[in-house]
Write a protein that binds this DNA or RNA. Sequence first.
DNA 1: AAAATAGTGTCTTTTAGACACTATACG
DNA 2: CGTATAGTGTCTAAAAGACACTATTTT
Lengths: 237, 237
Amino acid sequence: MNEAQYLANYDRSRYDSPLITVDAALFTFHEGQLKVLMVERSNFPEKGKWALPGGFIDMQQDQCLEDTVIRKLKEKTGVSPPYLEALNTFGNAQRDKRGWSVTVCYSALIAHQNCESHINTVADAQWVGFDQLTRMDLAFDHLDIIHCARERLKQKALYSIVPAYALPEKFTLPELQRLHEVLIGKAIQKKSFRRRIDQAGLVEDTGEKQVDAGRPAALYRMKENSGEYTFIRNLES
Amino acid sequence: MNEAQYLANYDRSRYDSPLITVDAALFTFHEGQLKVLMVERSNFPEKGKWALPGGFIDMQQDQCLEDTVIRKLKEKTGVSPPYLEALNTFGNAQRDKRGWSVTVCYSALIAHQNCESHINTVADAQWVGFDQLTRMDLAFDHLDIIHCARERLKQKALYSIVPAYALPEKFTLPELQRLHEVLIGKAIQKKSFRRRIDQAGLVEDTGEKQVDAGRPAALYRMKENSGEYTFIRNLES
DNA sequence: AAAATAGTGTCTTTTAGACACTATACG
DNA sequence: CGTATAGTGTCTAAAAGACACTATTTT
């Protein structure tokens, strides 16, 4: 038998295999809080519980795993997130009552304002403050997954400015610092925080100011590829 | 319908889903070279090409994804590796000629001596020097996966001593430094390398010496949990 | 003794922490 | 003016880079 004959005879339905889904932990920073997008399940299993946005791969529509996540996130938020990365894949015989299942998980960030209006039109989706999560009834192992994503984001806050993708395109440095402080769970020296961002040239001044209480803060925009930059030295954690 | 009824009626074979496999990039350091364990494929597709050790999840035998990798690695090496971590999951419609497929990939490290004898009894498995890989005909996207694993290992060499798991239980610091230098692709200051390991207390002196040419080197052993330690500052890359 | 490799002393450089200072807004 | 918040100056502390030095082995 040659490969062509093998492929012609190959029938995947002959083999039993685990369920496979793709999920995303989408974070944003709003009103001083880190929030995660959650979706209420309308079907069994775990009906009525809150879950991460996600679902099955559509082998016709999706060319790759990222296509699946982006499709699922667009359904809920109306847009595709500016930051998306593979988180981890969780699979075992117990996590889903239907049997052996695998979920390929992504972590994503978006500005609250960029999707708030669309989310309000989607009845089953809402932002949940990170601290409110434990009071909700979450489906599957999604709470573990969110903690895993949150831990990774904390690490990123120590050595990069990736968290900035959870803010609007134009943001102030004090705003970004507060986000990093929430992620790290500790105050950061203002001077240290600004100095490293300045020296690495990661942001550009838009010239605009944001007025609140006190002195107006300069609005910055991330420079191209600033998300890839990693500092050689971490902030203390 | 309630959940019990839903589950009783649930039949996963009704839904077509991607192929799912689990693969591992197992590295070792031997004779001054970084090597990867490769397996020659005995079946279609990609028959005769070299691939990462891996395969399908056995839903009876394996309780979780790690069980699958460890089972597959044990088949080839006779032992389970002292270091194993999730790498990434690769999935798309093109990577396997049988159609939409997903591979959950792990990265692992082991001492060459701990599995050499068993590998020699397995006809289709062998260590391949990293630099020889491009001259081989590799199956699927496994070369990309290896490069991804190698890049992650390089990063770890900059901020941890995780690569030490690719050495025997007892190793010398010059040996570990050479491994890190291969991974980083650049010479490291001997003093810097030793100082940070000393200060963090990551290794303990076994009292034994390894004689080669020149002054004998002290043999060290990693302390418990030294693999989890991350330096606050990276080596320069 | 010479060669080879292991291991140390110590000065410089880089970068974060600490914290007091100045700047610019509002009422 | 006082209060609030943004942003800077500057000293200290920690840890890596550079590199010359000493130590211990074999031949």
